[in-house]
Simulated scan of single mutants.
Amino acid sequence: MKKLTLLFLAIAFQLSFAQTNRFIYQVTMKPDANDKASEFTEKAYLDISPTKSMFYGEKRMLRDSLISRNIKTGNWDRSQFEDLRSKIDFLVIKDLGTQKTSIQQRIARDNFEYEEDRKMVWKILPETTKIGEYKVQKAETEFAGRTWIAYFAQELPYQDGPYKFSGLPGLIVKVEDADGDYSFDLQETKKIAQMAEFQTFGSTVKLKRTDFKKQLAKYEKDPIATIQSQSQGQGFGGGRGRGNGGGGGGNRTQDPQRQKETEKRMKDEIAKNNNPIEKE
């Protein structure tokens, strides 16, 4: 009887460990360096399974779900997407076995994926405090042109965290940059049946991080030219799908006045996004 009890407990432990855990963060951002009073907040999810983790915006998940439903029904209403525009329009996927981190992001009509090639080196400090129900310890790192201060909880045995942050002996409960422009704060935890799945809506081009930055800079300099190039099959993916926050595209002829208004809106949005999370 005792052996059966121990076996049951062992199986229950393994099943519990095999579950996917979802950690819900509130992300606070000040993307416009010229208007620090303008602050945006969004919810983001960090799903952790035994083999990998994935970080993504809640609005990204809701938007992809809506797109999939509209494809099936053929009922497209663009007004449904107005509240789903996101500043967390990317996926961060960490392979917990190889310790490799890859980022998937769409630029206009093309999907891109690159592997993070910079190692995050932490300095663990003796300072401890309490955040919510967790006792946490302080750590610091220099990454992508910013100084980051993190607080991790050893009672949450995951060497992981939001965005690209990982490598501490416990889940990162809070992390913020020294300038106060970006912060990630754990709000809720739950167990889920399986990790979220996303459709790419076209092929994905894998490239180096430095080359991805060049493509992004090219788009930010002239978004309309980038979209037109991709629409004519001159982009990397040559795919046909929905655009990201940068807008659509396609071979449809647009009214000149409307196209001019769209171009102005896109350039205004890019101009206000002059304080990115990664400065380098």
Rank of each mutant, 00 (worst) to 15 (best):
G241I: 01
E142S: 11
A193D: 01
L84I: 06
Q80S: 15
F23H: 01
E142P: 03
A12Q: 13
D185T: 15
L15S: 04
F23A: 00
S68P: 03
N75L: 10
T147G: 10
T5L: 15
D110P: 08
K52M: 11
Q199H: 13
E116M: 07
M195F: 03
F184G: 02
I172Q: 03
E142H: 05
K36N: 04
G167H: 00
A44D: 01
E82S: 06
V136R: 02
P31S: 01
E263F: 06
V175I: 12
K119W: 05
G145D: 05
I227G: 08
S65R: 08
V136Q: 07
T253C: 04
A108Y: 13
P50V: 09
E58C: 03
K119I: 09
K191T: 12
T141E: 02
Q187D: 13
K119L: 11
F40Y: 12
K94M: 10
D185S: 15
D160C: 07
I103T: 10
D47L: 07
S38G: 01
I149M: 04
T5Q: 09
R106I: 02
I48L: 12
F143S: 08
A108C: 09
Y151S: 10
K267A: 10
Q137A: 04
D83Q: 09
L62I: 15
S79P: 05
I277A: 11
M120G: 00
P126H: 06
I131R: 02
G243V: 01
A217Q: 12
K3T: 05
S68Y: 00
D35T: 13
R209I: 12
L4K: 09
Q19Y: 06
S86C: 07
A18I: 14
Q257S: 15
F236K: 11
V205M: 14
T20H: 05
G145F: 08
N75D: 13
M54E: 06
F112D: 10
K119N: 13
Y45L: 06
Y182S: 13
G132V: 06
Y56L: 12
L96M: 03
E58S: 05
E113R: 15
S229V: 04
R118S: 07
E113H: 11
S231T: 15
N244M: 04
W148T: 09
V121L: 02
M195R: 11
A33N: 00
T210C: 06
A225V: 00
T51K: 15
L62M: 14
K123R: 08
F198W: 06
G74I: 10
N75K: 14
K119M: 10
G57D: 01
K130N: 03
D268N: 14
E39H: 02
N275H: 01
G180K: 11
F55K: 02
Y158K: 11
G145Q: 07
A193V: 05
A196G: 01
K191H: 07
E133F: 14
K279S: 11
G132E: 05
E42L: 07
F112A: 07
E133P: 07
N275V: 01
S16R: 07
Y114D: 00
Q194A: 15
R118Y: 04
K59E: 08
G145Y: 02
L6E: 12
Y163Q: 10
N275F: 02
R109P: 09
